[in-house]
């Protein structure tokens, strides 16, 4: 078995990529990210029996990893486990379609038990100037509303549900509250909805334990471009100007404008007179 050891960004994290997980992306590969959203426990992640994430800490996002389409078995164990035989979560099957973009999240269910959910990320193209905001409920908490500017933009979202919005790019001041209320359980927090990106916000942790938090994943490159540059309207430098060089219709337009200005002037004078 060929095993490559890479140093991770997180302090002390080592990632072992087993032979089951090819390093190079190929056409049609699925993209998988993994979010650890179970508070207070460091874990190992096994994919098809191979240790893939060692000492994976809460609040950490791993990936994206390019994988051939297919079904993968994922088991999450205590960080001192010798193998995948006694998982804390799973094993669960992750069916990954060709070219699909996924995030597998280890999290608490509404009652506080560890579980895992596979989400499909929306990577469809956005209109120029727009961003996508995806909100996912992965916390041990009842159904919630997400409020922006005091108004509910997501209503009655329950674990492990998600809601997807398209918004003009910018920063949203977001608050999470129990459904039907406005008293924050998370926030207010500034969330950047980046242009041409899917910004995925996860509410995780436990309401009862007082450790609710937000995690963020961003998928960029979903932008489209302006469809033109309309940078002239008078024809002053046109290469097809009428023979005398002074476009007649522009002259006419100026006359119309002059006429309008004259009329406005007359009205003002009339008003002034009336004021006397």
């Amino acid at each position: 078995m060929r095993t490559t050891i890479l140093a991770g960004i997180a302090a002390g994290a080592l990632i072992a990529t087993g032979a089951a997980l090819p390093a190079a992306a190929a056409d049609g590969d699925a993209s998988l990210s993994v979010l650890h959203a179970v508070p207070g426990v460091t874990v190992d992640v096994y994919v098809d029996g191979a240790l893939t994430l060692d000492d994976f800490t809460p609040g950490t996002l791993a990936g994206p990893l390019a994988l051939p389409a297919g079904s993968y078995s994922v088991a999450i164990t205590a960080s001192d486990a010798a193998d995948a035989s006694a998982p804390l979560i799973g094993p669960i099957d992750l069916p990954l379609a060709a070219n699909g973009n996924y995030t597998a999240v280890a999290h608490l269910d509404a009652a506080g038990a560890p579980t895992a959910t596979l989400y499909t990320n929306d990577t469809s193209t956005l209109a120029a100037g727009q961003g996508r905001l995806t909100v996912r409920h992965d916390a041990a908490a009842p159904a919630v509303d997400v409020l922006a500017g005091g108004a509910a933009v997501v209503s009655n979202l329950s674990n492990p549900g998600e809601s997807v919005l398209t918004l003009p790019a910018g920063t949203v001041s977001a608050t999470v509250a129990a459904t039907g209320t406005t008293d924050p359980v998370i926030g207010p927090a500034d969330v950047t909805v980046a242009e041409g990106s899917n910004t995925i916000v996860y509410a995780w942790g436990s309401l009862a334990d007082g450790n609710l938090a937000l995690a963020v994943q961003t998928i960029d490159g979903l932008h489209s471009n302006p469809g033109g540059v309309p940078a002239g309207s008078a024809g002053l430098v046109a290469t097809n100007q009428p023979a005398d060089g002074a476009p007649l219709w522009i002259g006419a337009a100026f006359l119309v404008l002059a006429g309008l200005a004259g009329a406005a002037l007359l009205r003002r004078r009339t008003t002034a007179k009336a004021g006397l």
Binding site: L6, G8, I9, A10, A13, I15, T17, V34, L35, T52, L53, G59, T60, L61, A62, G63, L65, A189, V191, T192, V201, Y202, A213, L214, A215, V216, Q217, T218
Partner: peptide, 13 residues
């Protein structure tokens, strides 16, 4: 597989 801190604001470019 790259790892990153997913907390709000940590990934701000």
């Amino acid at each position: 597989m790259p790892l990153s801190d997913a907390s709000l604001g940590a990934a701000a470019t």
